[in-house]
Every structure is written in structure tokens, then in C-alpha cells.
Design a protein around this nucleic acid. Structure first.
Lengths: 208, 208
DNA sequence: ATTAATATACCCATTAGCGGGTATGGCTTT
DNA sequence: AAAGCCATACCCGCTAATGGGTATATTAAT
């Protein structure tokens, strides 16, 4: 019997996976969560064999949750689950200890294949992931990092229409610090031009 | 028999919905698509009674697709499907002719309720949507005559990330003219602050 | 025909955002 | 111990965007 925990902020997708696994007699879903903290509680309480987790989640993101779970329960297998075009995230998930990775663009049946494979100790990476990213992970390890905590906070506020001045006031830091974070994000994200960080924030608001 | 078409760029979610509707004898999925153009082809060919469509999709987005479908097949019921709190998008979907709206955060079973309701001619809005957005729709759509033709053109280009300089070059006018139009739009729309016109353009990109 | 809105174009001034730097202390990883 | 990232904060300079005017010719509406 494989015990599964699922974390994903879109309940509809969790429900879909539940429907898929309903008639698999050797698989049992022991808990579902809509954010990272809830996932951690479930894992500590019910000790699943396999965890399927989204990356972008409220409170604690999937990468952070993966690190913590692997620290406490190294035997637990973890499958990452996210949208396309998040190469850095994929690399980070694998670096954090995930042995499987699925894309939401792919058919749902892949979930079943992935669960079985990682449970047997294998690795399962979605075929739509550019193999480069997987091999690069070994060599580059952590060259490309996601945005830091402060940067995410600031980016969120930018998306809410706040100016650097307002953000500085809300965070009790100086304006120059906020502006520095802006510049660093622009560099990291490879953007250029005046409003592009704002655009990024608005358009990717739900994806990072 | 209710004939359904589904458009959603995450195949896994489509598969989940298919699993949900599998045993509903009076509902049949006649086609699924991962982008708007594919959806339009399916609708034209198979004429579904109900269409479920995501907003953020490649090629043609859900709002544009909804407008076109309602134009060609006014009898077709359309249910929007998106993530949390995209107020602008929700309003524009309803303005485009959708009579139902679901959030991905909600349980999948809602899909079934929504399909049945809209098929009978009713409206079905996810209970997690702030009712304000639904009533505000009326006022939003009345603002159509607010911006002039040139202003709309310029606003569109702003949304594409172009600077006043670039816009002026493309329109064969002086930069000061473009800037004047910007200021007039800001005044008309009651905006204030540096990036707000860009934000307006990005968020309302489907309807002005 | 007069009014209203539009499109064009300029003036002034201010500021927010961005592109470069530099620096320091804290923290984690190796 | 060294390397690296992070958060903090400053420097200089530049440009685009905004806020506030004025002006004129064209077009649309009354």
C-alpha cells in the first residue's frame, strides 16, 4: 500500500487526482493540503510514502517543504508538480531532494506512473522537461536561483501598484534598499525597460 | 444530452474534469483543447451546448474566444474558469457573455453544478467570488466610449511594453503628442502614479 | 453655426525607475 | 576558512513618465 499526500493550491486539481487514484487498490491518499504548512502537518502526522507537491503555494512553498520533509523523513519520495517554463524551480526541487517531476500541461495519468516509479526508488521526470535542465542540475547546482523572500515580497507589492517609496515605508527599510532589490530582480529575471518589472509582477502574479 | 467542450492549458486539469464527468450519462465531452484557437475549431465543428474555458491560454485567450463563440453561436453557454481574484478577468468574461464562472481553488464537483445550471439557462458564479465584482460589471462596460480611438491605440501599445518614444515613431507623431494622450487617459480613467497606466493596460487588455 | 471633443504639438517642472557602482554585516554551504 | 548569497544602504547619473499649463486645426455633434 502506497500512502500519498498531495499539496496543491488548486483544489480542483487535487480532486482530479483523487478521482484518478480512486480505484487503485494499492494506493491510498492519506491527506491533501492547499498550502505548504498544512502539508508539513500531514506528513508529520501520517508519514506518507510519496508526496506530490506544487511549487508555488501559500505560506511555505514546495521547495522549502521538500527540504524540510527530506530532512525529517529521508525515505519519503517527493514528486514536484508545476507549470511549464519554471526551469529554475525544477532544478531547485531536484536539488532539494525530489525524485520526480510532473508538468501540469501533461496528461493526468502521468501522476500514476510517477507515483509507482518513485515509490520503487526510481526517478520520473516529465518528458516535456528539457533534459538540459536535469543534467545541468548536477553541474550548476544553484547557479540560477529563484527570487529570495524579500524580493518576492517586494515583487508582490509592485504588482499591487505600490511605489518603491511606499514599499520602503511598509517594510521599514530605506528606499535605496527597495530599489536595489528591484535592480537585482531585473537582473535575475533578464528584464529590461521601465515598466517591465511591473508587467512581470502582474502577469506572473499567480505563477511564482 | 449536454455536449461539452473544454479549453484549458493544463491537460492534467482537463483529465480531472473528464474523470468527473465520465459517469454522467446525460453529459458528453465532445472535445478538449489546450488553447483558444483549438477551442474555436471544436466549437465550429461540433457545436457544444456548454463550453468551459480557462482565461489565460495560448494563442487566443478565453475572453476573446468567448466573444467569438457568442457571436457565432449565441445559444452556447459559456463557463469561465480561472484562478483566484482576477477581478478584471471575471468582469470581462461576464461582459463577453459567460453565464458561469468557477475558480480553480474550488472543489471539482462545482463543475458539474455549473454545467447543469447554465444549461438550464441560469447563471452560476463561484461562491468565493466577491459579489461586488459581479454588480460592478455594469459600470465597467459602460466606460467603452471613454477613450478615443487614438487613445485606445496608444494604450494597447503601452500594454505591449512600448515606450512613448517608440509609440510616437510607430504612429508618425511627436513624442509630446503621445505623452499628451497618456495624460488625458490618466485623467479620464482617474489614475495616479507612474506605472498605473501600464497596469491598467495590462489588466484590461481585453476590453477598452 | 456654435459647441464639444479630438489630435496635434509645445512649454515648464518634478519624480520614479533604472543602470552602474561600492560597502558591510549576517548567514549558509562547502 | 573561504566562498557565496542575502539584506541592508548609499553614491552618481540618466531617461521616461507624470502633473500642470497653452495653442491650433480638424472633426462630430447639437
Amino acid at each position: 500500500m502506497i500512502k500519498i499526500a498531495i499539496a496543491e493550491d488548486h483544489q480542483s486539481l487535487i480532486d482530479g487526482i483523487e478521482l484518478l487514484l480512486k480505484y487503485e487498490i494499492d494506493i491510498k491518499i492519506i491527506g491533501t493540503a492547499n498550502d505548504g504548512e498544512e502539508l508539513l502537518r500531514i506528513v508529520r502526522r501520517n508519514k506518507p510514502n510519496v508526496v506530490i507537491t506544487d511549487i508555488k503555494m501559500p505560506k511555505t512553498d514546495g521547495i522549502e517543504a521538500t527540504k524540510l520533509i527530506k530532512q525529517e523523513f529521508p525515505e519519503t519520495k517527493i514528486i514536484g508538480f508545476s507549470m511549464f517554463d519554471q526551469q529554475e524551480a525544477i532544478q531547485q526541487m531536484i536539488a532539494a531532494g525530489a525524485t520526480g517531476y510532473l508538468l501540469k500541461n501533461s496528461p493526468l495519468e502521468e501522476v500514476l506512473n510517477a507515483i509507482k516509479t518513485v515509490h520503487l526508488g526510481g526517478t520520473f521526470y516529465d518528458k516535456n522537461i528539457n533534459p538540459k535542465f536535469l543534467t545541468e542540475t548536477v553541474t550548476t547546482t544553484q547557479q540560477k536561483t529563484l527570487l529570495s523572500k524579500s524580493e518576492k515580497e517586494i515583487l508582490l507589492m509592485i504588482g499591487q501598484g505600490k511605489s518603491s517609496n511606499e514599499i520602503a515605508a511598509l517594510r521599514f527599510t530605506s528606499v535605496s534598499t527597495v530599489e536595489k532589490h528591484r535592480k537585482n530582480m531585473i537582473r535575475k529575471l533578464g528584464l529590461q525597460g521601465k515598466g517591465e518589472l511591473l508587467r512581470y509582477s502582474i502577469e506572473k502574479k499567480y505563477d511564482f
